[in-house]
């Protein structure tokens, strides 16, 4: 197992370099360091001297990938790409263009993101699996049929609609919870209730249908017939045997997103005023802050790789026949 994890970490390095390279290239195709300087220095009275000074202080006055003015290895190392990338591998994200420490910002914003994403994930998983199992229980009946119709309906509507409708009905019309805002600690509850419910409802259609398909696939397996033949009730067959055997596809979809929960949701955070990492990324893109964009993409890649490793490890827990070497 340790060998496997070590190997995966080694595999991750070229992936992260590649992701970093692509992010870097895409960002600088659209924005030049001069554009970034102008964005930071404002619209009025920006002189070429001020732009040069800004670039020099932040190391953006160098070549992007290859510095032809240097010799030997310095050709590659004395570049913006190398200097901005190397520190990230030790999780030193440096400073944003406004001078704020990015690592500190990420730390402070991670919790609000998690406060929404985690309940949506955990409660959502429970609700989706339960309803999917129920639909499988009633397969070929009108309950299953109308369940699928409702799921298709729910998944056809944009999540923005759920947000606006939820805010309108629950907060504006019925005055039950605040429309938007956030507080830490115990007070967070009243602010999180609506976004969490909306988060679960908005993704319900697609997820329930997905889990229903997985369970239906399992229902045709021989062990299900055997269980029934033993005289087990349908409830036990479903919730004990089918659920357990369907864990591999469930984990494949679910565990991989667990680390990504830290990154938050762009839309929900924006509409509900949650100060999480989703809104941090969007703000950085709008203000062309490459340091933050690069850090967030890098962090996303790292978390995704961790998610994949965790998925593999979780397989061994739910299915003892699987060994990772």
């Amino acid at each position: 197992m340790l060998n496997y994890i070590f190997r995966r970490i080694l595999y991750a390095i070229p992936i992260l370099i590649g992701v970093n390279l692509i992010t870097f290239a895409l960002f600088f195709v659209v924005n030049t360091p001069d554009d970034m300087a102008r964005m930071q220095l404002g619209i009025k009275y920006v002189t070429p001297e001020a732009i040069e000074k800004w670039k020099m202080e932040r190391g953006y006055n160098k070549s992007l990938f290859i510095n032809l003015e240097k010799d030997g290895f310095d050709k590659l190392t004395d570049t913006i790409f190398f200097e901005k990338s190397i520190t990230m591998f030790v999780f030193n994200f440096g400073k944003a263009d406004d001078g704020r420490d990015i690592t500190q910002e990420i730390k402070s914003r991670m919790l609000p993101s998690l406060a929404i994403a985690l309940p949506v994930f955990v409660l959502g998983l429970m609700v989706y699996i339960s309803i999917a199992l129920l639909m499988v229980f009633f397969r070929t009946t009108y309950i299953d049929f109308w369940g699928v119709v409702i799921c298709v309906g729910v998944m056809s509507i944009s999540s923005l609609f759920y947000i606006i409708a939820g805010q309108f009905l629950i907060s504006k019309l019925w005055h039950l919870v605040p429309i938007s805002g956030y507080e830490g600690g115990v007070d967070a509850g009243k602010f999180l209730l609506l976004p969490v419910v909306i988060g679960i409802v908005a993704s319900a259609g697609a997820n329930i249908r997905w889990y229903r398909t997985i369970f239906l696939e399992e229902m045709n397996k021989e062990y299900v017939r055997t269980a029934r033949a033993k005289g087990l009730s349908e409830r036990l067959v479903l919730f004990k045997h089918v659920l357990k055997n369907a864990m591999i596809p469930i984990l494949t979809g679910a565990v991989v997103v667990v680390p990504l929960l830290f990154l938050g949701s762009l839309l929900v955070e924006s509409f509900f005023g949650i100060p999480g990492l989703g809104s941090y990324t969007i703000d950085a893109i709008n203000s062309q802050d490459f340091a933050i964009v690069r850090a967030m993409v890098f962090l996303g890649s790292v978390l995704y790789i961790i998610g994949l490793v965790l998925t593999d490890i979780s397989y061994t827990i739910v299915d003892p026949r699987i060994r990772i070497l």
Partner: peptide, 18 residues
């Protein structure tokens, strides 16, 4: 000063007196 990025919640909270 509360940060409100979207106009819909801002408008509705104004109408509610917040």
């Amino acid at each position: 000063f509360t940060r409100e990025k979207e106009s819909i919640p801002r408008w509705n909270k104004f109408l509610q007196g917040y």
